[in-house]
Deep mutational scan, measured.
Amino acid sequence: NMECRVCGDKASGFHYGVHACEGCKGFFRRTIRMKLEYEKCERSCKIQKKNRNKCQYCRFQKCLALGMSHNAIRF
């Protein structure tokens, strides 16, 4: 039983190089595919399941810091 490295929810698998839940997987995919840019935040918000949708900037930064990558495809 793995935990999502981004928000701590139950991970659904290994997505983009990191154990992640469906919510964070979809969030990362949409951000990359649609080339979304979020308003910069300096607060280093703590991303948890209950508040993961509050600060998209910090959520995406955490995805990147954990090594999530669009190129991380498993063979």
Rank of each mutant, 00 (worst) to 15 (best):
G8V: 00
C63F: 05
M34R: 08
R52C: 07
K62P: 01
K40Q: 11
R59A: 04
Q61H: 07
A72H: 13
G17T: 04
K54H: 11
M2W: 04
R52Q: 11
I32T: 09
S44Q: 14
M34H: 13
C45K: 00
K54P: 11
C58Y: 05
A20Y: 02
I73E: 15
H15Q: 08
K40E: 09
R43F: 14
Q61V: 07
C24Q: 00
A72Q: 12
N53W: 09
M34I: 01
T31N: 00
K49R: 15
R52K: 15
R30I: 06
C7K: 03
K35S: 12
K25A: 14
S44F: 12
R59L: 14
I47L: 09
M34D: 15
Q61P: 03
G67E: 04
K46L: 13
K62G: 03
E39S: 10
C4G: 00
E39N: 07
H19S: 13
Y38K: 02
K25V: 14
S12K: 07
V18A: 09
M2D: 11
K25T: 14
A20T: 11
R5I: 08
S12N: 10
F27K: 02
S69V: 11
G17S: 04
C58V: 00
H19Q: 15
H15Y: 10
Y38G: 02
H70A: 13
T31W: 03
K35N: 13
F14D: 13
R29M: 13
R33N: 14
E3D: 13
D9M: 05
H19L: 13
C41E: 02
Y57M: 01
N1A: 08
H70L: 12
L36T: 09
Y38T: 03
K54I: 11
C58P: 00
H70P: 15
Y38P: 02
F60L: 11
N53D: 10
K35Q: 14
G8K: 04
E37F: 07
R43L: 13
R33S: 15
E39V: 10
E37L: 08
Q56K: 07
A20L: 09
C24E: 00
D9P: 00
E3G: 08
F27C: 02
R5W: 09
E37D: 11
I73A: 15
N51I: 12
K25P: 01
C41Q: 04
F28G: 02
Y38F: 09
S69Q: 14
R43K: 14
L64S: 03
F60A: 00
F28R: 01
H15V: 07
N51F: 11
M34A: 09
C4L: 01
G67L: 01
I73D: 14
H19P: 11
L66R: 06
G13N: 12
T31G: 02
V6W: 00
N53R: 08
H19Y: 13
K10S: 09
F75Y: 13
E3A: 08
N71Y: 06
F14P: 09
C41P: 10
R43P: 08
S12L: 05
R59P: 00
I32E: 04
L64C: 08
L36M: 11
R29Q: 15
G67H: 02
C45L: 02
T31D: 03
I47P: 08
C55P: 01
M34L: 12
K62M: 06
I47H: 03
K46H: 13
N1K: 10
G13M: 05
C7F: 01
Q56V: 05
G67R: 03
K54T: 12
M34V: 03
V6S: 00
R5A: 15
Q56R: 07
G23S: 15
K62C: 04
K25Y: 14
H70W: 08
S69F: 07
R74Q: 15
G26A: 14
R5M: 14
T31K: 00
C58E: 00
C21D: 01
H70T: 15
K10A: 12
R33P: 00
N51Q: 11
K35A: 11
R52M: 10
K46P: 13
H15N: 06
R5H: 07
F60M: 10
L36S: 07
C58D: 02
R33T: 15
A65P: 01
Y57P: 00
G67Q: 03
F14S: 11
K54N: 13
C55K: 03
A20E: 01
E22A: 07
Y38I: 04
C63D: 03
S69H: 11
R5E: 14
M2G: 07
S12M: 06
L36H: 09
I32M: 09
K54W: 11
M34P: 03
C63T: 01
K62A: 11
H15G: 06
K46S: 12
A20R: 02
C7D: 00
C24M: 03
R43Q: 14
F75Q: 15
K10H: 11
C63S: 00
H70Y: 08
K54M: 13
S12P: 05
Y16N: 11
F28N: 03
N71W: 05
F28Y: 08
M68F: 04
D9S: 08
K49Q: 15
N1L: 04
C4T: 00
L64W: 02
Y16L: 07
I32Q: 05
R5Y: 10
I73T: 15
K35R: 11
C55M: 01
C63V: 00
F28P: 05
A72V: 07
S69M: 13
K25H: 08
Q56H: 15
G13Q: 06
K54V: 11
Y16M: 08
R5D: 13
M68L: 02
A20I: 12
L36Y: 11
G23F: 12
C4N: 02
G17D: 09
M68K: 02
G67I: 02
K40I: 13
C41S: 00
K35D: 11
E22H: 05
G23H: 15
A65I: 08
N51P: 06
R30D: 13
I73Y: 10
G17E: 07
C45P: 01
C63E: 02
K40M: 10
V6I: 13
G26F: 09
E37C: 12
G13C: 03
Q56E: 14
R43Y: 15
V18D: 05
M68T: 02
D9Y: 04
N51D: 14
K62T: 07
A65M: 12
I32R: 04
K62R: 08
F60H: 04
K25W: 12
F27S: 03
E39A: 11
C45T: 00
R59D: 05
